[in-house]
């Protein structure tokens, strides 16, 4: 191996060089780049998944459809697209806690969660989460799953995109969907964190 680890400056120069050639070939334009960046910085993010979760918490019929066919149920809310063409929602219960990972690369349900955080794509999480999920959750996320609860880790090896329907917290009776959506965190839909706490 004659591996050379590039500096940030070297990568930036390499990317600009590549960009310049792809622009000249008509493969990309700065206008299209800016638009795509804008979509994933400002439009497609975990607030969309939170909206779906809040609706599932509030509407048993919608929840049944979501668990049956997540892609179709999300489409009804206008949520769909790239890297989430075929989605499966896995539901947390008193007995089961779900976590998602892509051990082989970085597969993640973009239409409901946006682009993944770097730790999700980094080798450390991908290496450890199938082998010692309880330890990873406790050590890195401060999140403990009781031993009585089964931990299920979903490794996204195909184009199916899994994501987690967390449990509705107690003390939220009568809350609106908009209020409930505020409680749903990105990490709770990955399965590495809790929904926001409700003051009792």
């Amino acid at each position: 191996m004659s591996a050379k680890i590039r500096t940030q400056e070297e990568i930036a120069a390499r990317v600009k060089a590549l960009e310049s050639m792809l622009i000249e070939q008509g493969v990309m334009t700065t206008q299209a780049i800016d638009r795509m960046v804008d979509i994933y910085e400002h439009e497609v993010g975990p607030q969309l998944g939170a909206k779906v979760v809040a609706k599932a918490w509030s509407d048993p019929e919608f929840k049944a459809r979501l668990v049956e066919d997540a892609s179709e149920a999300c489409k009804q809310l206008g949520i769909s697209g790239l890297q989430g063409e075929d989605m499966v929602v896995v539901e947390n219960t008193d007995d089961v806690h779900n976590i998602i990972v892509c051990t082989l690369c970085s597969c993640y349900p973009w239409p409901v969660l946006g682009l993944p955080p770097n730790w999700y794509k980094d080798p450390q999480y991908r290496a450890a989460i199938t082998r010692e999920p309880r330890k990873v959750l406790s050590d890195s996320f401060g999140f403990t799953v009781p031993e009585s609860v089964e931990v299920r880790v979903w490794d996204s090896s195909s184009e199916m995109r899994y994501w987690v329907l967390p449990q509705r917290p107690a003390g939220t009776d009568g809350w609106s969907e908009a209020q409930l959506a505020e409680l749903v965190t990105r990490d709770s839909m990955i399965g590495v964190g809790a929904v926001a706490q409700v003051a009792s």
């Binding site: 910085e41 690369c105 770097n118 730790w119 450390q124 999480y125 290496a127 050590d139 996320f141």
Partner: peptide, 20 residues
């Protein structure tokens, strides 16, 4: 790249905030 079960590459580091 086939990382599942690889030991010894360190803890998962989660920053408080991170831009897209």
């Amino acid at each position: 790249f086939d990382l599942a079960g690889t030991d010894g590459i360190g803890p998962v580091v989660v920053p408080e905030h991170e831009p897209v």
